[in-house]
Design a binder for these strands. Sequence first.
DNA 1: TATTAGAATAAGAATAGTTCTCATTCTCAA
DNA 2: TTGAGAATGAGAACTATTCTTATTCTAATA
Lengths: 133, 133
Amino acid sequence: MSDRVSTRQRRLLLEILRETGSHLSAKELFRQAVQRDPRISLASVYRNLHLFEELGLVDGKRLDRNCCYYEVKRSRQHYDLVCNCCGRVTEFESPLIEKLVGEVQERTAFEVTKAVLYLEGYCKQCEGQSKKP
Amino acid sequence: MSDRVSTRQRRLLLEILRETGSHLSAKELFRQAVQRDPRISLASVYRNLHLFEELGLVDGKRLDRNCCYYEVKRSRQHYDLVCNCCGRVTEFESPLIEKLVGEVQERTAFEVTKAVLYLEGYCKQCEGQSKKP
DNA sequence: TATTAGAATAAGAATAGTTCTCATTCTCAA
DNA sequence: TTGAGAATGAGAACTATTCTTATTCTAATA
């Protein structure tokens, strides 16, 4: 696996990820990519998303049962709040997570490389709703 | 959906979950269940795992790309450390998580119903290894 | 105990996200 | 420009999960 990101497809995918900013599923990323380059294949999308993750360019998160969502890695770590009702994703930041990771590393001799954290619940608009909309 | 848990299959599944204690995939749970009752079907395993989750008897966690892992809910909340190398899952507890959830609820008016948190990395034994074993 | 309506089940088909395969195409160092 | 190795496209394959439907079970009631 090379360190370079130098193919037409990779450039296009990163471009879309950077422009979009928010969470994209592989399918949606593919949909957008096809519009600009009809020759691109879904396999390349998956292949390169994995590559980008390995290179640390992109973060992949599984926010629901179905699929992963990807976004370019940002300088400030953030975590997601996923509404069970409307599906909207909002973000939050907190130093408590770094603190938690530190605590774990000290107490357990486990070398943490990635923290998977998100919270499910109901957003302001959907509060008081029951399980399904 | 009833509140009762009164079928042969449900009793068996809960029994296995309780005996095992640790994380079981649907497939593995099915494998064990078939040994005791060859007539049980995989569909029942999934159906009832969802039911148990709704009833608050069981926790389902997606610790890797592939599938969910289930275990009976315990009184003390815990979170998992998943080794990228050997796959072993160890557990940890920390009050920081409750603190974090509280912070989110205060700051964002988001009503949290579930916190999904686990850490990936390398356990003591596998430390220093590169990505794949 | 027998009846019975509604709930749960078994079996396997269907679905969907993801990964794999391999022949073809591209990239880039020389 | 060339050639070796890397990346791609197309679609088949895979896998976890969900759905469908005829059948069976459960448990409240007679």
